[in-house]
Design a protein around this nucleic acid. Structure first.
Lengths: 261, 261
DNA sequence: ACAAAAGTGTTGTTTTTACACCCATGA
DNA sequence: TCATGGGTGTAAAAACAACACTTTTGT
């Protein structure tokens, strides 16, 4: 087409591309090939739990995830995805790994065949999130029929490589226990010593000695004991503590030098 | 255009898009918006060094980086980038962070204005690599006029957020010292006790006690002493050691329980 | 002779670990 | 009274840190 100027070629292209873009809102709204998956943890009933969605189409459990808008920070995208799913804002979010094998989303076309855009290859950025069980209201998205907390000790079968992602999130959680404000974000603002100990025991996967645990964690001066104990339990009212933000933050900067192993 | 069928619309689009794609080889070869940056470390002359490239266009130092092919594993892409830059294959590579702020590549257009594709927003996946100084031959790419080892103690100004990426790589290196085969990958196959100690001292940034260091690291049974010492030095020939792969690997699986802090 | 490397012994300190008590209190 | 929570004392074991002294060996 020697008579066509470059300008005309581009003009036509844009007219046609606009139509394509309207067909697929996602293609213009989000960066292609990039997704994120979140392992959202809470601590409830003495158990570490993770938020799972059940896909409507295939009855498989999945981690909540999302995509990154054209001009959005990746971490903001994760916050947005999380807010939609749990109503929770200002959640503690930590990136822990990238899942970049081209094979990992081969099953996508099947899983999401109603949406062509979802059939592409995705490189997924893995985050773990820590939320307070009480401050959260679960909301299933339109692709999901259920949205539940599931104990990490009894995980169901999961779609794609999501079980793998979750296991790596758990491993990172363990390694970060002395470096990130994990206790602070998983517990309520006010908590008892047995609750804190059970959290540590659950994440580390082993029993800790009661007396020594309290002695050690108190020696860091990161806890403040409150005046009033928690009333209403079946037994002795336990003391309540909360974190001293300043000292906690300062202690994490260096990482707790061998806190608990 | 009611007479046009959807099929025709798409046919024209593809014809035109093909032309666009030919205009920009990169756009078809690589995933858009995704890059990777490598902090390549070696240990030489008692110093930890990092591989830097000097950009021809702006005389700024940069970390070597690359892009991910359409059907390529992200880690393979990092290996490929590294091989081009250093000739090194089978390098130890560890992903450590994602740099996903939309602001981070705002300077790109200026830096790479010869290549439109490079002006887009990039989410970069950060790797650190550990190489043996002797097994590497540096090669500058066509955008760079120099390619050098630079001591991490005397870093020059760097482009974009590369200094930030490098600092996070160093921090990760420190935290991984007891969990990843860092000594194994930075030293030669055969090394002396003072070399190993200096490596630990450099990464941790502090002096360690000679006698206690040797005692402790030998107690892990991860080293094998060779028959012959290293000849030719100015003083007493030091003993040579190498890692016992099996024991080293086993020890890393649990992480060295407080090895050196 | 000197300097770097190597090996080991010793000592005091700190940390860890494991028990053992004792007390408080809500049902 | 019992189950749970909370506080403390202490003793043995282990780990750590700091020194000191010795030996080896290539130049």
């Amino acid at each position: 087409m020697p008579g066509w100027s470059k300008t005309w070629t581009f003009f036509f292209m844009f007219v046609l591309m606009e139509k394509l873009i309207k067909d697929s809102k996602a293609a213009s709204e989000y960066l292609s090939h990039i997704s994120l998956d979140c392992a959202v943890f809470c601590f409830q009933g003495g158990q570490l739990k993770v938020l799972l969605l059940k896909s409507r189409k295939r009855q498989q459990w999945m981690l909540p995830g999302g995509f990154v808008r054209q001009d959005e920070d990746v971490k903001d995208a994760a916050h947005r995805a999380l807010k939609e799913r749990s109503g929770a804002q200002k959640v503690f979010l930590q990136e822990f790994a990238v899942f970049g094998s081209p094979a990992r989303t081969k099953g996508n076309k099947d899983l999401f065949d109603a949406h062509a855009w979802l059939g592409q290859r995705f490189i997924s950025i893995g985050f773990y999130a820590l939320v307070n069980y009480l401050s959260v209201t679960l909301v299933a998205d339109h692709l999901s029929e259920a949205c539940e907390w599931c104990s990490v000790d009894h995980l169901p079968e999961m779609a794609l490589d999501h079980k793998d992602i979750l296991n790596q999130a758990l491993e990172s959680l363990r390694q970060h226990l002395n470096f990130k404000p994990i206790g602070y974000n998983l517990l309520q603002e006010e908590f008892t010593m047995p609750e804190l100990q059970r959290l540590y025991e659950t994440i580390l996967g082993k029993k800790l000695h009661r007396g020594n645990f309290a002695r050690k964690i108190l020696s860091f001066n990161i806890l403040e004991k409150l005046e009033e104990p928690r009333k209403g339990g079946a037994h002795k009212s336990p003391n309540l503590y909360r974190f001293n933000h300043e000292n906690y933050k300062a202690a994490l900067e260096n990482g707790f030098q061998q806190m608990f192993n």
